[in-house]
Design a protein around this nucleic acid. Structure first.
Lengths: 186, 186
DNA sequence: CATCTGAGTTTTTTTCCGCAACTCAGACGT
DNA sequence: ACGTCTGAGTTGCGGAAAAAAACTCAGATG
């Protein structure tokens, strides 16, 4: 996420002096910015718990009913109930009524468009797990492009059209919505 | 994550009958497979808590020392201690000794190569948060390609070279490492 | 020798999770 | 009409994990 090498120890690097005498090896002092005012932190307030992403994975794979989620995930019912409410409130999931013939009305949970937009996150996690945590017999699941049956991967591209490689060097800098921390370190 | 529409209610879809009479709208019954034997689930056992990804974000942005992390994240010290141990044990983070002139030996935490490979996950979350949770003044941070200064995005591509759009249709199917659930639903 | 600092541990309190039991409404068999 | 079944939750409780704050400890510094 940075242009400087992560392998060079702090002591060997040119640095910006921080107010605490600690060398900071970046072009700007990330720790001067509010940690919560960050899209990653904000996203994690919605899905940064042990279950939400698994629920979303199941929903996106067609497991949509309360008891099916309970059975498949092994999640406690009250926890699932709360997570689904939170996800619905966050706009990631909608509760929809449906009725099978001869049965009373039921509800199912579906991904909203915003929820579907989380799929790249799921695919990025899947790719990482495939690489580092797979059994030797191969990945437990494969995502394919329905048009051509080829496997789908997550890749990083820049808007100039360059394809970034496996271990990209990036530069992260404050954007227009950045905010400095209120209480400076003391 | 699926080739079938998420917007069509269960009752209107062609389906595979499950053993519980519930229609399953996919080509295969996802819930028949073990939920834990999944690269997403496995990855989440390492980073699926409220802090790990924020710690990794900070590490990748040059905040590497214990007290700096405590101050920046607002995390409790004992929790940070445990998370760092777990991340180190999982191979995502290494603890490295270093010594500034006139100071005693200290430790800093760095991303390992495996940890750096999580960056696409962070960027995917950042993109989602930018889109759905940003203040009107714009994203709090921007990732750029150091070579050309253009913004970096996460994109989905298939191995046949097709660029998948914003709302891709995917097909997820069991891979060679998949495992059926032991206890079938009852 | 007293003090400061970075980097944790220990202790205590609070919050959250997992489990099991319970509720509730509607369909269904008899 | 009555009991049963099922899906979809809610309630209540014990234990695990997180937050907060105090304490430790080693080495540099005045």
């Amino acid at each position: 996420m940075t242009a400087t090498s992560d392998d060079v120890p702090i002591s060997a690097r040119a640095s910006v002096a921080s107010d605490r005498g600690a060398p900071v090896p970046h072009a700007y002092d990330f720790s001067a910015f509010d940690s919560e005012t960050c899209s990653i932190a904000r996203t994690l307030t919605l899905i940064g718990d042990r279950w939400s992403l698994l629920i979303l994975r199941d929903l996106s794979n067609g497991v949509r009913r309360f008891d099916d989620l309970v059975a498949h995930l092994g999640i406690a019912r009250n926890v699932l109930s709360r997570r689904l409410c939170a996800l619905a409130e966050g706009g990631l999931v909608t509760r929809a009524a449906y009725r099978l013939k001869g049965a009373r009305e039921r509800h199912e949970y579906r991904l909203s468009p915003a929820g579907r937009d989380l799929i790249p996150i799921l695919l990025a996690m899947m790719a990482w797990g495939d690489r580092y945590l797979s059994a030797p017999d191969g990945p437990p699941a494969v995502a394919r492009h329905p048009d051509c049956d080829a496997r789908v991967r997550v890749s990083l591209v820049c808007e100039a059209g360059h394809q970034l490689g496996d271990r990209p060097r990036l530069r992260v800098e404050p954007g227009p919505g950045s905010r400095l921390r209120e209480r400076r370190p003391r």
